[in-house]
Design a protein around this nucleic acid. Structure first.
Lengths: 360, 360
DNA sequence: TTGTAAGCGTTATCAG
DNA sequence: CTGATAACGCTTACAA
């Protein structure tokens, strides 16, 4: 009677029918408790029993049911990630960082990318809530407070790139204000007296901070800020903005709130036969890979997005594990990358005080 | 006694303590079965009870425990995705498509990226197996048969971009062979008689197929294929390959197995003062967004990667739901995009038979 | 239409 | 060191 079991077990494994811990227990001729202990490295199992059980489990190709496990353990070992509609290298680098942080801590990643409004985000958050131990949320929405509310304190929440004054949240963000301030300062230092700004979406927090940095750098320098043009972070809107400037009269420099729009500007300028940086200097933000490949290479601010993603997940895991972390926003300073598009001579130590310009 | 319950429930919701279906039942003064039925739109519940229950559940901010649900329902409503170490726009577009396919079918996406070797991938597959209803796996490994084995038929498996002769698997892939064949044919038709090929990683199936296409196009044309240089799909390796060609003597044209490497080539050629396409024509593969922005814009083959991702997930969901799908590989033909880098005059109907060249 | 109760697969407590 | 057994939260026959 007992002899037949091995055959049954093997058949099971081959057929792919779900094999449970009871099957393993039966085959190994021990109790389910012992199997559980052996599988979970509990020390209260004799070495030989453990090995025996492990061998049988392997033969049966046993994989514990995650749902049952989470029911019993009250944890899922997965972190949920909610991201806005991101593009290109920025998105893939972010995910790379998130994945790194998760797998490094034995966590799975439940991903949800959003293609829409905040209502959709809240709905997504609700359905994720019961499947994850913690959440990492990146929301460009100004009303992102609502998101934290949706989670309702049920599980830890870490925010990405949404600096806000929320009392209790942990948050990892790029210092958009500082980066924009520095770029504007750089342009001003190089003698550009009329600098136009191509803004991002009005309801986007990153975009707002970059605009503030742009303006404050001018205020600090005691110089009037140039015109601010509307944009939406996409290349096309940069192209359109430059086209408007070409019509209204070119400034000395254009600072676009991200690289994609800066590249759009560059295209429009090239098309119109305007030399960059000789006639108009140009700068962007983000340092997407294309930035150094365009001609001329783009002056910009690099944001360590993968690193931030990794840290955010790690912080989330810590919170899940009950570590008390003082809440607050950790800001990461972007790195100013001066390339040819801003007209700065990289070999030269100090910027010129004034600058001769070909056009008035 | 009963009067106090409402207060307790509200306190619970505020505190964020896990509220279960029993709490809802108690508050609504019905049985858990009724709550379950109300929440799951079962028709066997009176409209008023349903509304009542729904209201209470809302007040309590109740979210069903996914683990318990999956235990009972024997499904998780999530699809697992296993991806290799991908970069840039290709990666983000793919994820966009996968996400679209998942959310469109009410599924969650469990993502696992960055798999160096196949052992790692197999381990990841094992731990995912119990948390998902189906898997979409993209493996560039030639030995990817092992992956299917790891799943052992426990759940449906759909492969991405790994064309193989596996009897039972469903698979969605780009016709790399065809795309490469057409690009090579295009270069040949435009009179380039010596065409170098910058290959991808030797163990990468996509790369192999592209090389085959390149060679077969030459065979078909009765023309000897130019030198094949090693590469690894990264920009740097394209740069290095072009550097080697500059030293050994330039061909008439260079066909890189992907756009990233083609752009690397372009950089090296520019750096050396070689005019593209006047002195050397150039073509890539993938149509990453940068391809049309470099100067000159890159001739390449566009692969509908987001679309493929979406379809793969949808197919997987169908399989999970028990739809019988005839297995096999669905190949998607890339779209040949002729731009300036290959020297073809787009306004011109037919390619020239022979071509005058500035260099021997 | 509603309630009762038996699973679903694990882990953990408590005896042995 | 090992074995019963009671949770864990939900769905679903089966009864009423």
């Amino acid at each position: 009677l007992e002899g037949g079991r091995s055959g049954v077990g093997r058949a099971r494994a081959i057929a792919g029918a779900k094999v449970t811990i009871r099957d393993v227990a039966r085959m190994a001729e021990v109790s389910v408790a012992t199997v559980s202990r052996a599988l979970n490295e509990s020390s209260t199992v004799s070495v030989e029993t453990r090995n025996h059980v492990l061998r049988i489990a392997g033969e049966l190709d046993f994989v514990p049911h995650a749902g049952a496990r989470s029911l019993s353990l009250r944890r899922t070992d997965t972190i949920g990630v909610l991201l806005p509609d991101l593009h290109g290298e920025y998105f893939s680098e972010l995910i790379r960082g998130l994945d790194l942080g998760a797998r490094g801590n034995g966590q799975h990643l439940l991903l949800s990318a959003l293609h829409g409004d905040i209502g959709e985000a809240i709905a997504a958050l609700r359905t994720m809530r019961s499947r994850v131990d913690g959440l990492v949320v990146m929301s460009p929405f100004a009303q992102s407070e609502l998101l934290a509310e949706a989670v309702n304190g049920a599980i830890p929440l870490v925010r990405l790139n949404s600096r806000d004054s929320s009392r209790s949240a942990s948050c990892f963000a790029i210092d958009n204000y500082l980066g924009a301030f520095e770029i504007a300062q750089h342009l001003i230092a190089w003698g550009h007296s009329r600098i136009a700004f191509v803004a991002g979406p009005a309801d986007n927090l990153d975009a707002r901070d970059r605009l503030r940095g742009f303006k404050d750098a001018h205020a600090r320098a005691g110089q009037a800020a140039g015109p601010v043009l509307a944009g939406d972070f996409r290349e096309e809107s940069g192209f359109a903005a430059a086209a408007r400037l070409l019509e209204a009269g070119l400034p000395d420099a254009i600072f676009a709130a991200n690289d994609a729009m800066a590249i759009g500007c560059l295209q429009a300028l090239k098309y119109a036969g305007v030399a960059v940086p000789a006639e108009v200097a140009l700068a962007g933000f983000d340092d997407i890979p294309m930035a150094r490949l365009v001609d001329p290479p783009l002056t910009t601010a690099r944001v360590p997005i993968a690193e931030i993603g990794r840290l955010a997940v790690e912080c989330c895991v810590e919170l899940v594990r009950g570590r008390v972390i003082t809440p607050g926003c950790r800001l990461f300073a972007p790195e100013l990358l001066i390339r040819a598009s801003s007209g700065a001579n990289q070999g030269q130590a100090a910027p010129p005080r004034t600058r001769m310009r070909g056009r008035s």
